[in-house]
């Protein structure tokens, strides 16, 4: 049996790296007192995986961790145990028990939604350029990869942008092959507006995956 846990990352803890968070969760699951399944081998560790890494400095209300249990446990009991093992700045928001055959959330993720707050003088100009961005077919961007830099068309990676007074919400592609990060998007919008990228607060609100019929649904509901 596995537990899918959706948790948040509050502003105070937004500077914990993904690697540090992984290490933190190894100890946190030990504290739950739940029957945790461990890997085999010389240095066993809990069997668990994350839905998607969150970049340093971002906050979230839709982080998903998948923890394998060595014995069946009730949902409520699991939720209480995990909540007690986490600090208040990593709140548990939703728990779902699934069987071992359930696909790994990491493999299901397709898109993500963000709420982006922009600060400073250039913010309105950046927000104004959203319309222009959405109307285009092609927006060329330079993306840093492991092997160097490559030119991509960023436009199809951006599914939807909705302006609001303080910034905008964005739905972006998030697969291994096709993805764009909010900070690159802000840089592109700023470029189009002809201003320096403003300071931004990036908050993840949703991860979406594909169900067997091919339609997109929140990751926890798949």
């Amino acid at each position: 049996m596995r537990a899918l846990i959706r948790f948040g990352k509050q502003p105070r803890l937004r500077f914990i790296s993904h690697l540090d968070l992984q290490r933190f969760f190894q100890r946190a699951v030990n504290r739950t007192g739940l029957p945790i399944a461990y890997t085999q081998g010389f240095n066993p560790h809990p069997v668990m995986s994350f839905g998607s890494a969150l970049a340093l400095g971002w906050t979230s209300e839709y982080e998903v961790i998948d923890i394998k249990l060595s014995a069946p446990m009730g949902r409520k009991r699991t939720e209480d145990a995990v909540r007690a093992a986490l600090p208040e700045d990593l709140p548990v928001l939703e728990v779902r028990m699934v069987d071992d055959k359930h696909p790994a959330p990491m493999a299901q993720v397709r898109q993500a939604e963000y709420r982006i707050e922009l600060m400073g003088e250039s913010a309105p100009a950046v927000i104004d350029s959203i319309d222009d961005f959405m109307k285009r077919d092609t927006v060329t961007a330079v993306k840093k990869t492991k092997s160097g830099e490559k030119e991509i068309n960023a436009r199809p990676l951006v599914i939807d942008l909705k302006p609001d007074p303080n910034g905008f919400t964005a739905r972006l592609m998030l697969t291994e092959r096709d993805s764009i990060k909010p900070d690159l998007l802000i840089a592109l919008l700023s470029d189009m507006a002809g201003v320096e990228p403003p300071e931004a607060r990036i908050h993840r609100t949703l991860l979406l995956g594909e169900d067997p019929e091919g339609s997109l649904r929140p990751l926890m509901e798949l």
Binding site: P11, R12, L13, F15, I16, S17, D20, F24, A28, R31, L56, G57, A85, L86, P87, D89
Partner: peptide
């Protein structure tokens, strides 16, 4: 304080909010 975090090595050093703090 947090404004400085993106500019320093290892911001977790100054972050606080650890479990059992």
């Amino acid at each position: 304080i947090e404004k400085l975090f993106m500019s320093v090595q290892k911001p977790v050093r100054y972050m606080g909010g650890e479990f059992n703090a």
